[in-house]
Design a protein around this nucleic acid. Structure first.
Lengths: 206, 206
DNA sequence: GTCTATATTAAGATAGAC
DNA sequence: GTCTATCTTAATATAGAC
């Protein structure tokens, strides 16, 4: 029963090829944006024709959605972020990783900025994504505030937006000027915030 | 001599029309990016044909450069920024203005992100721009550090990048989610930084 | 599955009338 | 100065052979 002869013939669309196309699409979208990227450039990277790429994904739009889907997974924390320490460690690690895999952040920034346009095919995705990521960050902050780990007069929402905004803005600057040390600036922010807002039994703890 | 009859006839290319086209181009580039914008959409806004627009600027690329030129001017401080207070007040005011003129910041973010691609026509402009804006910020910080207004163990470059990065990242988030209060988050940052690094004779001063 | 060939659409740019 | 008409190019997508 491994290859049914009845019913519609299921073309495997070999997962291997799909993955290779996704890799290439991710890189090209990251460099050129969705609007600047062409199926031909993606196809060229994979070593096939433009029609070959479309055979696997049907349309450029579907390919974009598949890329966003995978991006979302790669970007997900392995476990739920319950404490501030975990959240901070997670985003900081993302920043460090980003230095070695510039493609991931570049994809994020390039597509997110393009997506400001409500007519952009990834608009809804990014609107939703930022909502999710924000709450993922606000929740540990609120929990900490409730349990006394954080000064209780802090606007946790403003704080979460600040940290996320700084992270992304720094990445944008870094992409345009590699001299920008994203991690140094981000650590500066984390240190200052910790000093100002974290109520800690043992001092000097981030 | 107001209209010389000798020599090459100088078509005025009425400054009024040029300005109207620039306005429209700025708005459309801000919404769609350079790659997503079309001369036709710009022309439609002005109420003329695509060929009419090209008559005034020659090419889409030239139009883009004209837009960047004007953007740079509108964004320039009226006077040199000598102290930290002046610099901070200036960028904060920009942020506040940005809420009422979303087009300006949207232009900045959208084109800057597109420009990460070295092949983008505005790449050099933004690389240069970030260099300039950064030094405009680092200089007052260094001056303050030298004169004792700032703790002298601060990495002023990292600090400048942090402030600029936060500003832009917050704008990006705001563009995708209007609930993001850019000014609130930015003020949070400024307060915390001032508290941590500014050596002030009178306390509580930003 | 992958190719070549082609249909279709949309873009920037040019030519020439008015 | 502005228009219409057209050239040229490049893109997505489809059809059909292998």
């Amino acid at each position: 029963m491994s290859t049914p002869t009845t019913g519609q013939r299921q073309y495997a669309k070999t997962p291997g090829q799909r993955a290779r196309i996704l890799d290439a699409a991710m890189a090209v979208f990251a460099r050129r944006g969705e609007r600047g990227a062409s199926l031909r450039e993606i196809a060229e990277r994979v070593g096939m024709s433009q029609a070959g790429v479309l055979h696997h994904f049907g349309s450029k739009n579907a390919l974009l959605l598949a890329v966003l889907d995978r991006f979302d997974q790669e970007d997900q924390p392995g476990h739920p972020l319950l404490t501030i320490d975990e959240s901070v460690a997670f985003v900081r690690e993302e920043l460090v990783q980003g230095l070695q895999r510039p493609g991931l952040f570049q994809l994020q920034i390039t597509l997110a900025a393009e997506s400001i346009d409500p007519a952009h095919p990834a608009h809804d995705f990014f609107v939703d994504r930022y909502r999710r990521v924000t709450s993922q960050f606000v929740e540990p902050l609120d929990a900490a505030a409730a349990s006394g780990g954080l000064r209780d007069d802090v606007d946790t929402t403003a704080l979460a937006h600040l940290v996320m905004g700084a992270m992304e803005g720094l990445q944008l600057h870094h992409a345009l000027n590699p001299e920008v040390d994203t991690v140094a600036s981000f650590d500066l922010l984390l240190d200052v915030l910790a000093e100002a807002f974290i109520v800690s039994s043992t001092p000097d703890q981030v």
